[in-house]
Design a protein around this nucleic acid. Structure first.
Lengths: 327, 327
DNA sequence: AATACATGTGTAATCGATTACAAATCATCA
DNA sequence: TGATGATTTGTAATCGATTACACATGTATT
């Protein structure tokens, strides 16, 4: 691998000239430029990012923290992140924490070690205190999550309103017995969506039945099944279910089918996230669509602003209710 | 951010001593060590990877090339890659090509620019000639794909045998009219799986009906639906279908359901890959399980061997037929 | 006491780029 | 013609670490 020194020698100019050519070809004289181009071509030279990065003290790498890549909700967000990052000359390091603090630690250290220029955190389970500590010293934005105290810049949707819309839709098509499959209330979004659910019921004068709210301890398919199993075992069975994630809804759907009941005739079902699989089930799933690509794209813009020392405001984006066969 | 120089000054020793402490604390005297530890702590020092990387001319980053992260087949492979890489002190750069050559180019350049130490390619659509060219000059292994000429080191399964097993299973449970939903034969694995399908039929004396082989132009859900629609429109309708990917199979399942037919009673269905969603459908999908985690893990071991200049042999791993409700 | 060897530390070169500053060249114009 | 300013290039310091080599000290051996 040729270095800039060798190119300089071959072209009969100094390394400074080569560097100038690399960074702004226009400022080197036409004649010199041709010699440099010639030398680069014959030596098959490619500049080393290692040298450049050290000198500029930047890595042009962004860390994206997420619990797990297998959750399809994130894939579309990642597309937004990746496209925007590449457009801005950055690359992304996709980091799965599996909600394990020691994994988190590794990635926070990469930041401290200057192997990354900033962090986009999409992990709801990350330790809040540590995150705030990091955010004080390094560029960091939260995507689809946020900190109630508003110390950390974020981009997200209005979870309360989205849940409200979902439940309102169920009420509008005639349901009164509406259950909710929620994830642990340690998550802010879970608390907010529950508020939206309650507000919709309340507004329509439907009494709240605590029997019909089921809290799962994870977001997997099986948790959805268990939740539905429990709901189907209640003395009074709901006619509609709002699940806070599509995967949970798909688990519920499976359980409903197993019990010989039909969606939407016996039980209507609304999910959340509009993952691609929500369109592949039988029946297809009514769900809340988040502007995932846009969220990803925005968070990169915000992060790069932070890296460049500019101030950035948090943003709340719009969601959309997608009505399909399950309601 | 403190540098090694400042730490050295604070501790009253030379930078060499700090560096030695960082890389092998045992070789610095106990007394000095304590001074160094003290200085590091009070300055809150974290060594810069930029400096280290330049000096060692390595980045400790591995590029993982894949068509799209949204294909769940890859997520488990990635887990294997990530765990093993971290264990070996490397990090991974997940790179989606979307099968676009210009995206590929970006990532190959990162390699040339020394921003990555090696590449694991899982992209079947990547330009072969270019891949071989890269493999000649840089550490590269192929995972789940391979080059027929055997120039590039790879880890994969025996696709012909896996398809053979899948079709044999259908024959064993009484099917004679067996269709295949295949992806384009530009992919080596598609050609191989077709061979396995033909061998199984042939061995059981079942004549091959060209009407029953459908070639899709992509691997998406809708392609599966279209394929099944076509098969259901034939003059003679098959009683079993072998699809070369679970997503295609799930698309087919949707179409079968829409036509009011039942799986497995009217039509039996076998997929390929054992993605997590294959267990969430109604009915669950019989499929071929590839050792995805192991494939990922192996490919990292092989790549690191290559990076360290050691010779490495290609490997073919075992698959497994997972029989579930759809057959 | 002389020698050999192990242990611990410092000096300074090095990795491959960028860039401030100085210097050389050239054209322009009074 | 000489001053002025623009354009182009070179010199050398720099980013933050690692490491070969040299040197000083302590310990063991005869």
């Amino acid at each position: 691998m040729a270095t800039i020194q060798e190119v300089a020698q071959k072209a009969g100019v100094s390394v400074a000239t080569i560097s100038r050519y690399l960074n702004n070809p226009a400022i080197v004289a036409k004649e010199t430029r041709e010699k440099v181009e010639q030398a680069i071509k014959t030596l098959n030279y490619e500049p080393s990012m290692l040298g450049r990065n050290l000198r500029k003290s930047e890595s042009r790498l962004l860390i994206v923290l997420l619990p797990s890549i297998s959750n399809p909700f994130y894939t579309e967000v990642i597309n937004g992140i990746e496209d925007t990052a590449i457009e801005k000359g950055y690359n992304i390091l996709l980091c799965q924490t599996d909600s394990k603090p020691e994994r988190e630690e590794i990635y926070f250290n990469m930041m401290k070690n200057r192997l990354a220029d900033g962090i986009i955190s999409m992990d709801p389970t990350v330790d809040r205190a540590k995150l705030i500590e990091i955010a004080k010293n390094f560029p960091l934005v939260q995507c689809s999550e946020y900190d109630e105290e508003g110390i950390i810049t974020y981009v997200t949707i209005d979870n309360e309103l989205a849940a409200y819309h979902a439940v309102k839709h169920l009420i509008k098509i005639g349901h009164k017995k509406i259950a909710m499959i929620n994830s642990g209330e340690k998550f802010l979004y879970a608390r907010e969506r529950k508020q939206g659910y309650l507000r919709a019921l309340n507004e329509s004068g439907i009494p709240f039945n605590p029997d019909w709210i089921f809290t799962t301890d994870n977001l997997e398919f099986d948790a959805g099944r268990q939740a539905m199993k429990s709901l189907l075992g209640k003395s009074e069975i709901p006619t509609a279910v709002f699940a806070v994630s599509d995967i949970l809804a798909i688990g519920a759907l499976k359980e409903i089918n197993l019990k010989g009941l039909a969606v939407p005739d016996d039980i209507a079902l609304v999910g959340f996230d509009k993952i691609s699989f929500s369109n592949m089930t039988q029946p297809t799933l009514t769900t809340i669509s988040q502007p995932m690509y846009q969220m990803g794209s925005m968070s990169v813009h915000m992060l790069i602003n932070k890296i460049n020392g500019k101030h950035t405001e948090s943003i709340i984006l719009d969601h959309e209710l997608v009505i399909r066969e399950s309601t």
